[in-house]
Amino acid sequence: MAKSINITLKVWRQKDAKSKGHFETYHLENISTDSSFLEMLDILNEKLVDEHKEPIAFDHDCREGICGMCSLYINGHPHGYESEVTTCQLHMRKFKDGDVITVEPWRSRAFPVIRDLMVDRGAYDKIMQAGGYISVNTGGTPDANAIPISKEIADEAMDAATCIGCGACAAACKNGSAMLFVSAKVSQLALLPQGKLEAARRAKAMVAKMDELGFGNCTNTGACAAECPKSISLSNIARLNREFLCAKLKD
């Protein structure tokens, strides 16, 4: 049987990128614990629209944890306290009756707020454009056994490739560093033979773009991996460091 709870929300409201933001408090009653966090925000928005007020802007798309569009810094954690889930996979059953929930946008110099809880994560796209691809002419599909790849390597590359680029790593990092994201993208390609050829150029280009866009310096606190909805491992960061330093030493 569905249970319902009453909650208080403190939500960051900001008219546009240039305006000064502030917290607004909302009381919500009879929220079903079966609803997801984003559905709860939908309910709040409908209420706001009924009251002829501006609804809260927040990012969302697939609502099944794979697109990387949802964000939200909930009670001090990107994607909420639950590990290995995105905000869209967070459900109201994880909250108690009477809870006060603080919802903030990602805060990082490289992710400026567009409106309310929406931030511009175009910086990650720019890093990808700088080198997060393979530029070989692939021709026809080769036989799967033409290039043998060990199970361990394939698994590690696949684990790195699960990164959805949501930005939780930079949002969680006290240094606003994007190293976990960049390292996952560098790793998924550098581990495989097709990506190895351009590994050095890729690492240099992506790190240079990351630095240029104003992300901070990684100090290995590990907050990124702890908050990552896809559990991207910190060992990817070691691999990125290795790839980058080896590439620089060859210059």
């Binding site: 990082s108 992710f111 560093s177």
Partner: peptide, 10 residues
Amino acid sequence: AARGADRYAV
């Protein structure tokens, strides 16, 4: 500086 001007409240 990379954290941005606004700090997290929580």
